[in-house]
Design a protein around this nucleic acid. Structure first.
Lengths: 238, 238
DNA sequence: CAGTGGTCTAGACCACAAT
DNA sequence: TTGTGGTCTAGACCACTGT
């Protein structure tokens, strides 16, 4: 690793998981000592530790020190973390597959155009995919993308990962995403594909994802089986 | 405001919303110019701008500059942001009220003890509150808290805000929280209090909230009416 | 008081992009 | 080559905590 703060992050994270600081009352050494050990300046050490604070691994108190936050993380269900931007293919543990149910072109309506920051009636892909984890239906995903921004999508790509195509073939960088989560009643389509009864709900994630040039490239509605998906978030007051 | 990076943050945020940088192609001045204008060092300016990046307001490209990310934020429903830790009382727009349905003491079971980092069978409050916004039922909230850590809870406090009591009366600092979100079928209790039909679901938020000494003080299950609550999150790849 | 983290500086050097 | 952001430094001063 070339970035100093990043490798410090990783080493300290490793130590926390290895319980190396547990013996000293869950307290880390002070910044100056850590700086000496890692041969860096205080600013660099602070940057590294601040990242761990945001990750919910440690907390710091002015005048006292830096301590490990023992939190009770993650269990069974497929769990998407707050910070993650990857598609399912990358983030999930089990075997991820996908079935393309619809793959069409359409003219963007006002909502889509707004969210993709394009003109109304511009051409967009309209894709509906059912994704499985370990052969169990997991999420029904409706995706809109501009055909101009993301050319060359075909069935073969959809079978694998759109994100990989965008990053490695088109060489575009995906850097951020806005998500809105809500619960919803399942509709007939959800019930059919996600194998839900009419009483069983879905967790809908509406996402707008951005490239590194600030352009939104994807507007999607992911309807998750309610009992196979959790969303996890750690927040720190600033 | 005494903190320089914070006041820079606020001023630039104001300018972005006022559209001051819109004319120059949504591009902000370079760091050096901003430093000169705000009379600060580059590190301070970077810190201020990095916060705006995490907030999803701008994005930056090495070699090119800093640009405004026009995103399509928030509409109707009560929306809780990722970063927010406040109770409802503080974060919502409309009039927030609460009705205490249960207020009991109990011995912590294993799950509660685990999440509050206390011994099994320690005494905890077991509180069930129904909260309203503009007199509409909104969320049914089951809260467990250690009676030792948070002494003196009574009905009067529950009618108002537990968070205010903890922060201003007990003088404890609430600094971080882990949330897990999932959709769930409504049970009879949900239906009764949130005025839901049996088909209508809830969005459940399981939260563990921490004080500034790393101690988890609250373990809660908030079951939200599906169509009156959204959770919004912005994530940036590091 | 000493010990700790928080902010801020002035400047160096690097990586990347447009020209 | 120039302009831009990204990293890193060495040190100053401040704020808060516990002794």
């Amino acid at each position: 690793m070339k970035l100093k703060y990043k490798s410090i992050c990783e080493e300290i994270t490793r130590r926390i998981y290895d319980g190396i600081y547990k013996e000293s009352n869950n307290k880390l050494p002070d910044e100056i000592s850590l700086c000496k050990e890692f041969l860096c300046s205080r600013m660099t050490m602070k940057k590294a530790l601040d990242i761990l604070v945001m990750d919910g691994l440690i907390y710091r108190k002015q005048g006292q020190g830096t301590f490990i936050l023992e939190n009770n993380l993650n269990d069974a269900k497929v769990c998407v973390l707050d910070r993650e931007l990857q598609g399912l293919t990358k983030s999930s543990q089990g075997k991820a597959t996908a079935k393309v149910l619809e793959f069409q072109l359409m003219f963007a309506n006002e909502d889509i155009a707004n969210n993709l920051n394009i003109e109304v009636n511009s051409p967009v892909y309209n894709i509906l995919r059912l994704r499985y984890i370990n052969d169990l239906p997991y999420v029904l995903e409706r995706t809109y993308m501009s055909t101009i921004l993301i050319p060359g999508i075909n069935l073969e790509i959809l079978d694998k990962s759109i994100y990989e195509y965008i990053e490695f073939t088109l060489n575009l960088k995906i850097v951020s995403a806005q998500k809105i989560l809500r619960a919803d009643c399942s509709n007939e389509q959800d019930q059919k594909y996600l194998e839900l009864t009419p009483e069983e709900p879905v967790l809908e994630v509406v996402q707008t994802a951005y490239l590194d040039n600030g352009v939104p490239f994807e507007y999607s509605f992911s309807r998750h089986r309610y009992n196979r998906f959790e969303f996890s978030s750690f927040s720190v007051r600033r």
